[in-house]
Write a protein that binds this DNA or RNA. Structure first.
Lengths: 291, 291
DNA sequence: GCTTATAACTGACTTTAGTCAGGTAATTTA
DNA sequence: TAAATTACCTGACTAAAGTCAGTTATAAGC
């Protein structure tokens, strides 16, 4: 334990020195760091200033002052929210968008410099960083609805497809098109597509499409390797079942393969039972659950 | 690449929030953070204030002021270095030592809380942190003399022994005693023991003992898994050869095993040649090098 | 319609960190 | 031994971050 604390401190020292410099790269543009961070948090479509305040944990007065400074520079315009005119939304001017780009590029360059230093161990570095971040964020996994054509959804699907191709010889890339050909059926009100997020990294997905009135099919359950062992798959299944109920479904089906033994064990332990085959394809196990 | 930068930023956000809190845990004792960090850098035997300045990258004036504040609190006494009376050494008073303990405990508790949250993935977390730190510190590997009884030397040796036990069935724990029975022979002026450091983590070692006048034997070359692939083994060998020359040796020998193929390849490429057996034991290859 | 709550703003203030221009004493160099 | 250098100190200053009390406009509750 003592040794591990020494190692944590070493990690702490190194990381605050090297990675902390990502933030300080925002300096050098004649603007204090906090002002630059506020600017960089404003999205093209505008950002509710309350969101900025929560993200940076700033006092209301402090943020006000920083926004006034950005307005005086002509980079930002703050307007009242039409829906609730007490709330205010910050927008980037054209000059502000240009400056935002500069900051984004600075951070990008700094990050690239870190990876360049890793040389041949770049991949290992990224995986180690993911693991650290995921462990520290494990209590904050969030499941949100996504559009099946969204980049996050597509990144989950392509990871899921890679598993299928690696595991089953009978799958070919042509059988696994991206984006999904019937994307509309995975959108509300027909079906659903859920993505699990760890901070802003997609780490899991599951989808639901209608089969016949009152019956839905669960497909494409996937959990990122760095997020396994935390019950995320079960949370995703529970979430999609809830969504199915909200859509008026009373029965769910799925087809799977006994080769995916972890998934099958999860289904069984969550009340799914075997049913007769209803698809061909590489499936060799069919299950259903009454909601 | 874009994805990896997003992942680095995620890592950055999480780590500055979670691990950065290790430092801020020094707050809450009615003392500014920088003052507390200075106090915690003072060792029981006293610390040269230049070392503190370099470690924290503080301005000379700033550190002076912080030390005056700690003196006024009765926690620290700064005395002139007898060897060079311009230099000054900071010492902890009794009250200062007590306060130092409190800060140490605070950091300790905070670190433990991080590990506790990792649950079953504690070991994986530590290894990932080590990897990140080592990659970022790879240009800063330092090789220093160590005493063979030093904790760092012992930790290297026990890791080395573990490899031997795992690789060769013919080794038994009794054949690998710790601490070394003939430690004195690995100390100057007879021999040497070198340890490679990444920050304050020992990541490699090599040792040298006298065989007969003018002839030395290199033993126990080890490199931590997280530090492999960076040429550290070669640097250690070069360093121990230099040390051997300084000790007046003109010839080096070693015994090894062809099972350790990486090591053997290194020796050969660095000018070592096969010689006749001079030991029994699990060795099956004997080499020498003229200095 | 009146009261209360909420969101943001303004101005005054403090703390912390850090810089800079001297100054002194000790040591090293020429 | 004089001049230069080094190590540290002091005092004056600034910038950045953050806190706090009070104000205004809007929305929500009764």
């Amino acid at each position: 334990m003592l040794d591990s604390i020494a190692r944590l401190r070493r990690f702490n020292r190194v990381v605050t020195r090297e990675i902390g410099a990502l933030d300080t790269s925002y300096l050098g543009r004649g603007r204090p760091l906090s002002t630059a961070r506020v600017l960089h948090l404003i999205k093209p479509e505008g950002t509710d200033i309350a969101v900025i305040r929560q993200t940076l944990h700033f006092d209301s007065g402090l943020l006000s002052r920083l926004l006034r400074a950005l307005e005086k520079e002509g980079l930002v315009v703050v307007k009242s929210d039409p829906a609730d005119r007490r709330r205010r939304i910050a927008h980037l001017t054209e000059a502000g968008q240009a400056e935002w780009q500069v900051y984004d590029q600075l951070g990008h360059d700094k990050a690239k410099a870190v990876f360049d230093r890793a040389g041949s161990r770049q991949q290992a570095l990224i995986e180690a960083m993911d693991l650290v971040a995921t462990v520290l964020l494990q209590d904050e996994l969030v499941i949100r609805d996504a559009d099946p054509d969204d980049p996050a959804a597509l990144s989950c699907l392509s990871a899921y497809y890679r598993i299928l191709l690696d595991t089953f010889a009978s799958f070919t890339p042509e059988m696994l098109p991206l984006p999904l050909p019937e994307a509309a059926r995975y959108r509300s009100p027909d079906g659903a597509f859920l993505v699990a997020w760890s901070d802003d990294l997609p780490v899991g997905c599951v989808s639901l499409r209608p089969l016949e009135p009152g019956v839905g099919e669960v497909k494409r359950l996937w959990v990122h390797p760095i997020a396994r062992g935390q019950g995320l798959a079960r949370r995703l299944m529970r979430a999609i079942e809830t969504r199915a109920r909200e859509l008026g479904m009373t029965r769910l089906q799925l087809d799977t393969n006994t080769g995916l033994s972890d998934a099958v064990a999860l289904y069984r332990s969550d009340g799914w039972t075997d049913i007769a085959p209803y698809t061909t394809s590489p499936s060799n196990l069919w299950m259903a659950k009454r909601l």
